[in-house]
Amino acid sequence: MALEILKPGLSTTVQDLGRPGYYHLGIPLSGGMDRYALAAANLLVGNDEGDAVLEAVFLGPEIRFGADATVAVTGADLPPKVDGAEQPTWTAFTVKAGQVLSFGFLKSGARAYVAVSGGIDVPVVLGSRSTYPLGALGGHEGRALKSGDNLPVGTVRRAAQPNASVPEALRRGPGASPVLRVLPGLYWHRITEEAGRRFFEDTWKVAPEADRIGYRFRGGRPLDFVPREQPFGAGSDPSNIVDSCYPYGSIQVPGGTEPIVLHRDAVSGGGYFMIGTVISADMDLIGQLQPHQSARFEAVDMPAALAARKDRARMLDEVKAALAG
């Protein structure tokens, strides 16, 4: 069974839950930016939660199916259509051999996850099927899909329940006024107390430079630095450090002006200071933010970060329970 890509959309890539273990060599985790939506899409079609799916950004692809399959679309509200007939999101539906899956215009969110029963069966590279386009690694030929590509689909392991649906309350997304929770740290001491306070007070807007590597924000007030003599090897700008590793979710602020939150295809290190890290539970939400959308950052401590992580895990368990029942 294969999927024939008639139109690729804006940037559609094969993603699973990522490729851990190579970050020390500069190969990032990759995988779905919204891992919650990715897992839910897989569960809806009877796949394992970490099977490979398609991640479509802003604009959906057009796909002709080579055989009957169960499909689910989660994450962004990007309405799926089968031969032109609209289907619900967060809900399993059938696509028959020869039918075409296409998408209407994006209503909210940024990234839709398209799971197909059996999973996208591109070769496993370094333990994952995820695409890392910058390194031309994994996925389909190491790149975003193009018209004319044919994607293999794996063997169905579990029969999907027709019309299975994730309950509304469990469809996790950033909502209308997103708040990203941050654990301050790393080089937090480099900015003044006043600048730190303002960072969390200000409303920021997602900049057009927002992709799988990182999300840039603008519109808040610039950060003031605590004066120091720059350490040897760091470089002369007060925002420079001796090149270090970058955590996923870390917030670097080159020149103290525009914060960048690194995401699943993060550069693994570099020479800009970081003021803290978005907590693991909120990383999914960033992947659903559109350019020009407003967002705020909120400081939390470690117990709050761990509690949020547990809440997210519990929600996913509830999705599993709802679909099993």
Binding site: L183, W188, G233, C245, Y248, G249, M274, T277, I279, A305
Partner: peptide, 16 residues
């Protein structure tokens, strides 16, 4: 320093 709930960052020295 903790980098969120999944990382620990250890700076051995400020200068290279």
């Amino acid at each position: 320093s903790f980098g969120g709930d999944e990382h620990i960052f250890v700076e051995v020295d400020e200068e290279m």
